[in-house]
Design a binder for these strands. Structure first.
Lengths: 220, 220
DNA sequence: ACTGCTGTGTAGCTTTTGGTACAGACCGAC
DNA sequence: GTCGGTCTGTACCAAAAGCTACACAGCAGT
């Protein structure tokens, strides 16, 4: 954990001087790396989290140990634990992990509360963040029961691939995102490869035929 | 649609005179019945919805036509469409239906916006509602991938049963809630009946052994 | 080069779930 | 009562997904 300047706070640069002063007074910039979880179910949340750099992954762990990604938090977005713990007494039910080297701005609860009351723009950001998350979760929930695994995998590939069509992710990770096992992912991948949609490598998947994948999603 | 007194607004009774005056000026009390959907994906939302009486069901429809319940809105709770449409430009992705005769207080967007800015208590209610919904959706998402259908059905029975252990719901409805088909529900029910957990009737299920059902959820 | 770790490819087998098809039971309207 | 609709029960088959087990490939460290 490192406390440093807040110059890189992204969306927060637009705040008024008043807001920024509060931030300067109390906020911390926290650095985190991939392996260890940052937050665990039931853990106490000390403030509002804003992702500055990198990406956080919010996931659940089933009783049998398999993981499934609920959603991601990208730079400029808020973590909703904060909001859950600041405005509600619900225990937070998921795990959080940094995907890569990630910087998170941690704004202490009292400071954020004050900000929220004073600054309409903060109210707006907050409600918008929550609202967006609700939307994402609904989409995810809909996807889970409306689409089969091959379609969801195709979707994952298309969404997370770089512009060059490369996806730096192990099959184990993909399985975790989809809430399934590596073997199933491998099986589906073999199919995709056979159809010429993708090429697989160690830790990388290259998309060769995005149209094909997209078509798979449209009509099974 | 009927416009009438707002005396029964539940949580809103606690608002300041200022807030209630605004409500008196612009809000409507809308009555709706079970069969027809109230809202459809992409529909324009004209304000904030508060459920006063009855219950709303928010659900998704898959391309193949099967439904799945996302969550319910009970009396005293807010519908988040409103918030999505008032604070965000995201298209709403689900369907809404009244479960029984239901009264909904509809507060026009501009009125609610003004309320939100002036009244900290409204801010609180709003954020809390969103926050709770996020929590519920996460739980649901976790449940979907962590538990099997029999466990989820058992859970449904336990949660929705009356104090007397009666559940006035057809198997078709249960299937819709779980995102599966009636036949599967019937099959699972047969199992539950065989084990003495429940008794089935036309449109009703009676729980005989709640412990048994609960045990089913704990360890399959 | 050797070793060990991690990641991938594959082959069965089992369980779970979905789909089809049909029979019968209950209920209300006429 | 009888008709028609809705709800339930069930049998059988197909598809999807999970589980186990193992072989091998790439990569890093020694």
């Amino acid at each position: 954990m490192t406390t440093s300047s807040l110059e890189s706070l992204g969306p927060f640069r637009k705040l008024s001087e008043d807001g920024r002063q509060l931030l300067r007074r109390g906020a911390m910039l926290v650095q985190c790396g991939p392996p260890a979880p940052i937050l665990q179910p039931g853990q106490n949340i000390s403030g509002a989290y804003f992702v500055v750099r990198g990406r956080l992954r919010v996931y659940a762990i089933a009783p049998d140990g398999t993981e499934a990604t609920l959603y991601f938090i990208n730079p400029g977005e808020t973590c909703v634990f904060a909001l859950n713990s600041l405005f509600n007494d619900l225990r937070y039910p998921a795990w959080v992990q940094a995907e890569s080297d990630t910087s998170v701005a941690l704004i202490p609860g009292p400071v954020f509360r004050e900000l929220f009351q004073k600054e309409p723009s903060i109210q707006d950001v907050t409600v918008r963040a929550l609202s967006t998350l609700v939307f994402r979760l609904m989409e995810e929930l809909e996807e889970v029961h409306a689409y089969k695994l091959d379609q969801r995998l195709a979707n994952l590939l298309l969404i997370h691939a770089s512009a060059a069509g490369e996806l730096p992710m192990t099959q184990q990770q993909m399985a975790a995102h989809l809430g399934t096992t590596r073997e199933v992912v491998a099986r589906l991948m073999r199919d995709f490869v056979a159809r010429g949609y993708v090429e697989t490598g160690r830790g990388v998947t290259r998309i060769k035929d995005a149209e094909g994948l997209a078509g798979l999603i449209a009509t099974p």
